[in-house]
């Protein structure tokens, strides 16, 4: 096990796993508490469409998927702010459009697209140095924006009070959703489209069970998000099982324990 840590691709997998675990579970707290759990799913599928478009255009998928998913995230937020439609409905529409576009792009491309399929379930052991570089960049951005937690938490607690205190709540909505889109695109490569929502929802939900305050919930969530990556990766390396599955099952186990502890 320890000598495995000497291998560059294992090192990259570990670093990527920890970064993804931390980023998704941090933003997950805000997403879950705003009842936008479905957003992770929706944006993961937008990422899929973006990747398919990238492959169609013969570009590096990441550079197409990032702006594509951010656009979708901003559009979802715009529709939510403009209409009576519930958040889940707004997300659901863009979810469907993304899948439709993704399938269309794939069919337009000549031949089979194995890379696009790999995105469905993710592959943590094939993280490239470029992927990792983008993740580190994104982590730095999130760190830089950490002071915004106060505004985001306030607007999550009560939108009206935040507005009364002159917070640019709508602007923060756009910013937050764009950031979630960036994190989702970068994570999808590792986690897979199918399991993306779990990374955003489960650690935050577990943290909610354990925390009396929103600050505690945030810390717990990030802690759990990072921690569950370790047994997952070990299982992936040791028993040759998919890392994404192993991580999500670890998260679910911790959730179950938290739930039982409350009884």
């Amino acid at each position: 096990m320890l000598e495995a840590l000497q291998l560059p691709f294992i090192q990259r997998a570990l670093a990527a796993g920890l970064l993804v675990g931390a980023l998704t579970s941090y933003l997950g707290v805000l997403v879950v508490q705003r009842r936008l759990s479905f957003l992770g799913d929706g944006l993961a599928h937008a990422a899929f469409a973006g990747v398919a478009l990238g492959l169609l255009l013969n570009q590096e998928p990441l550079w197409v998927a990032l702006p594509f998913a951010v656009t979708v995230a901003l559009a979802i937020t715009w529709v939510r702010q403009q209409s009576h439609l519930g958040d889940d409905t707004a997300i659901g529409i863009f979810f469907a459009v993304s899948v439709a576009l993704g399938v269309l792009f794939m069919s337009l491309r000549q031949g089979f697209a194995p890379d696009a399929v790999a995105y469905l379930f993710g592959s943590i052991l094939t993280v490239t140095p470029t992927d990792l570089g983008v993740m580190v960049g994104l982590a730095l951005l999130v760190l830089l924006l950490l002071p915004l937690w106060r505004a985001w938490a306030y607007a999550t607690f009560d939108r009206e009070l935040a507005l009364a205190d002159r917070l640019p709540v709508a602007l923060h909505d756009y910013l937050l959703s764009a950031l979630v889109a960036l994190v989702v695109v970068v994570s999808v490569k590792v986690v897979g489209i199918v399991l993306m929502a779990a990374f955003i929802v489960i650690p935050a939900a577990t943290a909610r069970l354990l925390s009396p305050t929103f600050a505690a919930m945030t810390l717990w969530s990030v802690g759990l998000g990072v921690f569950s990556v370790l047994p997952g990766l070990a299982a992936a390396y040791g028993f040759d099982v998919p890392a994404g599955s192993a991580i999500v099952l670890t998260q679910a186990l911790l959730f179950a324990l938290a739930l039982l502890r409350r009884r």
Binding site: W149, R150, A151, Y154, F157, L161, D165, R166, F214, A215
Partner: peptide, 9 residues
Amino acid sequence: SGLRRGWPF
């Protein structure tokens, strides 16, 4: 939160 006009960490 009424004092800070933000959520306290």
